[in-house]
Write a protein that binds this DNA or RNA. Structure first.
Lengths: 202, 202
DNA sequence: GTCTATAATTTGATAGAC
DNA sequence: GTCTATCAAATTATAGAC
């Protein structure tokens, strides 16, 4: 691990890698210490417990996504433009951190209630009601084909996020190597946007 | 746990629940024993180790899906009909076992290589080349809009699987209760099919 | 702040009686 | 086959020297 950072940063950087790859239950404090180039005692000196350390990582992994989503949803663009922005920005961001979505989704499913409390307290709750109203309005104006708004949002989220969540499965099933996969993901955003427009524009 | 089953069945039923909910690393043999209504020693008497027991559960969870997928893909229907069959059957199946996809995807990502070896040895590898050829042919005939075949398959898989993988996150973000969620999922298949047809038919 | 050594706890696995 | 009691290993957490 990079010696140029201070100890606390080295720990969080190492913990991020280990937790995101192994999950909370599968992560080992020893592995985090090794990767950070220090010993276990330091982890507790800085973060007191495994759980506290995990919380810092989880909050950051989730917290970087929601503000961007909120910014996109609350702009003054059309629904289709917002979906396109989301696909572009989300896929670009996740391409840099491909393991984050699976991490978030998996840990979240272990204790959904605690999570709801957390995002509420951090103010990360996306305000979807305005966006759904906009969606309904554009349908009424005939600018979009009529779909159930929630299903439609699920479709967009699914196509942007799922390939990264299921990367190991998809790579295995299609027998792709890493290079082929990366090339494919470079086009992902454009393909999703094309597909979306065909489905959405009357 | 149901006393009418024999011990081995009680164990596998209990292990399935615990492993699928907690993952391999998060599952505790004690919890499995408790849920099965027996003691830990019995688990080892029947399955020798945690890893062996896990393998039985994982193989079953994954192995029930692939034959169905293969059957759908190798029928003599059109691409769109195959996609519709997939959406219908897959969503119906998963609605009964909503935690399976996340379980498979998460455990898979821990050790992709071992998994590839496994599905290969079990003969579960889907033969996608024929389906991709059919897809290309229908595009050439002008019966489908031209999309990259792999991206197109990803889109269908994403829309069918992701909502179940991300159920806790989606429920939290949309502030849905369980009843609302179940109602929504009852319509999922129809919505996906409608969306797909609009995107696919020229 | 950082380390070594060690305590305390959890957890998978086994021995042996019935 | 099933149980209780126990072991052995792994893992989180802390004590105390420097």
């Amino acid at each position: 691990m990079d010696q140029s950072q201070n100890t606390e940063e080295r720990i969080t950087a190492a913990a991020k890698e280990i937790f995101i790859q192994r999950g909370f239950a599968g992560a080992r404090m020893q592995d985090i210490a090794d990767k950070a180039g220090i010993n276990k005692a330091m982890l507790h000196y800085y973060f007191r417990s495994k759980e506290k350390l995990f919380e810092v990582i989880f909050d950051e992994a989730f917290g970087t996504l929601m503000p961007r989503v909120q910014a996109i949803l609350s702009s003054d663009k059309s629904v289709i433009e917002k979906f396109e922005d989301f696909a572009d920005q989300y896929i670009a961001l996740i391409s840099e951190h491909p393991h984050v979505p699976l991490f978030v989704v998996h840990e979240l499913s272990q204790d959904p209630d605690r999570f709801v409390e957390k995002i509420r307290s951090k103010g990360h709750f996306p305000k979807l009601s305005l966006f759904i109203a906009q969606l309904q309005q554009e349908v009424d104006q005939g600018r979009l084909r009529p779909y159930n708004p929630v299903h439609l949002m699920m479709n967009v989220l699914s196509m942007c996020i799922f390939p990264f969540v299921a990367k190991p499965m998809l790579k295995a099933v299609t027998q792709m190597d890493e290079t082929t996969w990366n090339l494919l993901m470079q086009n992902r955003s454009e393909e999703v946007k094309r597909f979306l427009k065909q489905a959405l524009i009357p």
